[in-house]
Simulated scan of single mutants.
Amino acid sequence: MKIRLVNNGVFTPVEEIEMALTAPAEGFYWIDADVEDLAVLQPLFSMHDLAVEDCLSEEEQRPKIEIYESHYFIVVNSIRFDDEEIFLRALNIFLGRHFIITVTKQKINELRTLKPLLWEQEVSQPDRFMYLLIDLIVDNYFLVGDRIEVRIEKLEEDILMHTKKSHLNEIIGLRSEILWLKKVLGPQKEVINTLNKRDLRLIDDQLQKYFSDIYENAVKISETFETYRDLMGNLREAYQSSIANRANDIMRVFTAITTIFMPLTVITGIYGMNFDNMPELHTHYGYFVVIGVMVALGVSMFFIFRKKDWV
């Protein structure tokens, strides 16, 4: 657990947690905690039992906002994409009048990238801290969306050039993750809309209007992932079409080969009959003539099929 006094974007480490219980002369306290620290923080900051239970739960938490007497409890999901799987990491925020507590189970990159932004904008209020943090989280969805789009384009190119059975597993896996992510974006969008429109005494009225920009971005993100879902459907159709075309090409080649060998089979069948009165059997160069005819016939048929683009 790290405790910092934030004033005009400048961080001052605080050793004693008790100092954060009272409002500082200037600035606010930011407590960056793990879930294990809640046992200490809950009685000191009067955290509601249900909010603490949500933080400790092993189940995936939906984004939400809960209003309590002395603080707000807000859950938003940070996103991460490692080219194989999409990860959502819950960020639990306790917003008070003079403090903000962030509780996480895993590291959240936005908490690290937020620090220079606080210094640049000389932040001295916890509600503005939360606004900038949520804004970073939402913006990161755009970055992940761009990477997903690149992966979709590459997958489409691979399917058109060299279709493999493994591509179907990639399509199904990525599509299911996009669908799952889109379900999560709905509640998160509503949380941001609540921060924008609801009368919240711990958030400055002027600052609250800025949440509308974040809400618009959240709507754009939701629409973008809706588009990705449709693209994955088109990609699956392209895969199935490519597989069907390849099967047709193979069958066409086999059919052409079979057609070429059919007259050759007839010739060998005729001269394979066990009749004594077959003049060609006694011809000195009969064998070579028949072989020459068969080769000429096969080559001629091959070039005819090639000219018609059948092979």
Rank of each mutant, 00 (worst) to 15 (best):
E122W: 09
E216L: 08
N245A: 08
D54A: 12
R201G: 08
F87A: 10
P24K: 00
F225G: 03
L111E: 12
A90D: 14
I203C: 12
E170M: 07
E59H: 14
D213M: 09
N8F: 11
L235D: 03
D249T: 11
V299E: 04
D139S: 15
I172M: 11
L297K: 00
T265I: 11
A247I: 14
F73G: 05
L231P: 05
E66F: 06
I291K: 02
G27D: 07
S124I: 03
E223M: 07
R97T: 01
W30H: 12
E149R: 13
T104Y: 02
M273S: 04
L91V: 15
M278G: 11
E110Y: 00
A90F: 01
G96M: 04
F73W: 08
D139A: 14
S242C: 08
V295Q: 03
V138Q: 04
E58I: 08
G233S: 13
V123C: 09
Y215M: 03
R151P: 00
E84H: 13
L202E: 09
F87L: 11
L95K: 04
Y239C: 04
L50G: 00
I100D: 02
E190L: 07
I86M: 11
H284V: 11
A247R: 06
E223R: 13
Q106P: 00
T258V: 12
I101Q: 00
K209L: 15
L88S: 07
I178F: 06
V295C: 05
N77G: 06
S222Q: 05
V266H: 04
E59D: 15
L174V: 05
I203T: 07
E170L: 15
L21C: 07
P43R: 03
N109A: 15
A23D: 00
L133N: 01
K182L: 09
N234F: 14
G286Q: 08
L132H: 05
S300D: 02
S57E: 05
Q106W: 04
V10H: 14
A20I: 04
G272H: 01
I250K: 05
R252T: 11
L44W: 03
K64T: 09
D49R: 10
M301H: 01
L195V: 10
L297Y: 02
H98A: 09
L56M: 13
R175N: 06
S70E: 15
I250M: 14
L168G: 02
L136Y: 05
H71D: 08
A218M: 14
T113K: 02
Y29R: 01
P263R: 10
T265C: 08
P187H: 05
T227L: 14
S78L: 04
Y131I: 04
E149S: 14
G292I: 10
P187A: 10
L155V: 11
I137C: 02
E18M: 02
Q106E: 15
V75T: 05
E53D: 10
A296F: 08
V184I: 09
Y210H: 10
T102R: 08
E26D: 07
L179C: 01
